[in-house]
Nucleic acid binder design. Structure first.
Lengths: 193, 193
DNA sequence: ACTCTTTATGTATATCCTGACATATGGTAC
DNA sequence: GTACCATATGTCAGGATATACATAAAGAGT
């Protein structure tokens, strides 16, 4: 089983979905921490069905093409539950901006500072989007969030990861941009100073 | 040109290295944010040489096999300088632990809490390692760190990224472990409370 | 002698993933 | 009518990456 397979099972454990639906979920939501194109999803669904982890039924639609709606099987749910508590296989982190940073001493200072200002903005925009979602969740899911075995808590928990990740990244970009603009590392202002 | 190609150029811009040396650097140091196996490095070096970005000379050694030592060319350095200031191509983040978190509501609570406690430890260990390096750099490179166009500053800047990343990740793991152990989300204690 | 480790350089196979190609239904805009 | 868009499902070619296979020099340990 591939990680993508478990990503799909994770979505199907919450609701029945077509391949197209899964593609949409992978673009937003779950896609913030695991994504795939439809060219990967359709073959993976076939493999999951071969393995007995999911099954599908064809749903005829008017005004739209027919679709295959997939649901998770008992075997699929068991496999997912088992996978969740296994330590993740350590993957090497690949961060292109940090790699560029390693060679930033060679770069034109003004252009380099601009690069980090732009990346700071990108992460701040993503952060703002996450914060909106968070406010919505904390309002809408007040009850569900009191228990860690609700899917709402799980969604909220991943969102919190996204928020602290983007906040941290934006803050580092700010430090980089400031340092380059001054020509020397700026003081630590992380905790407000 | 691939990102790995620029990673190699970034290393060669600092010192001449053999394929084997590059492999070592990719295991530690640079490998914290970009890594590759030797099976990828050797072919990439050949492509870089084809493109005129690097050239090599054979160095005969006693008591060891001969080696090919690569150095970056003027064209390679130009390409690297240009690449550094270009915005990175946005790659989808793939974080298996966060993906597991999305399905954590299905998991056995005790085992899930244990998972996050273990991951917290892993990130704290990495953080401790980075903090050691940071202390060493701030002592050893006092002079070099006053200027952002020194390779030492570039190394220091990437290290700071690693530090805040690990600190943030460990803190989130703590929040997860605590929340699951209590059966409900724990209060925000991020800023000390 | 034999094995193991480090240095040193490669190739081969398989998988993951992206981008492009391909097809079909039916609505909306011009 | 025609072009375009959203829905819907697939295939294919190529590049990136990991794991394993393969070879070789020389020291260290048994």
């Amino acid at each position: 089983m591939t990680t993508l397979g478990y990503a799909i099972l994770g979505l199907l454990s919450r609701e029945d979905l077509s391949g197209y639906d899964l593609k949409q979920r992978m673009a937003g939501r779950v896609g913030y921490f695991w994504s795939a194109k439809h060219s990967q999803i359709y073959p993976e669904l076939a493999r999951l069905e071969d393995g007995g982890y999911v099954k599908h039924s064809v749903v005829e639609q008017r005004e739209r093409p027919d679709k295959k709606v997939y649901e998770i099987t008992a075997e699929g749910l068991d496999a997912l539950k088992e996978w969740v508590i296994q330590p993740p296989v350590p993957r090497p982190t690949r961060d292109e901006l940090t790699l560029k940073t390693y060679s930033v001493w060679l770069a034109d200072e003004e252009k380099a500072a601009q690069l980090f200002r732009e990346e700071k903005l990108r992460h701040e925009e993503q952060l703002a989007h996450y914060e909106e979602l968070r406010a919505w969740m904390e309002g809408e899911w007040r009850e569900e969030l009191t228990s860690t075995n609700s899917p709402e808590f799980a969604s909220y928990a991943t969102l919190r990861r996204g928020i602290s990740y983007e906040r941290e990244y934006a803050e580092w970009c700010r430090w980089m941009a400031d340092s380059i603009a001054r020509g020397e590392p700026s003081e630590k202002r992380e905790k407000g100073g």
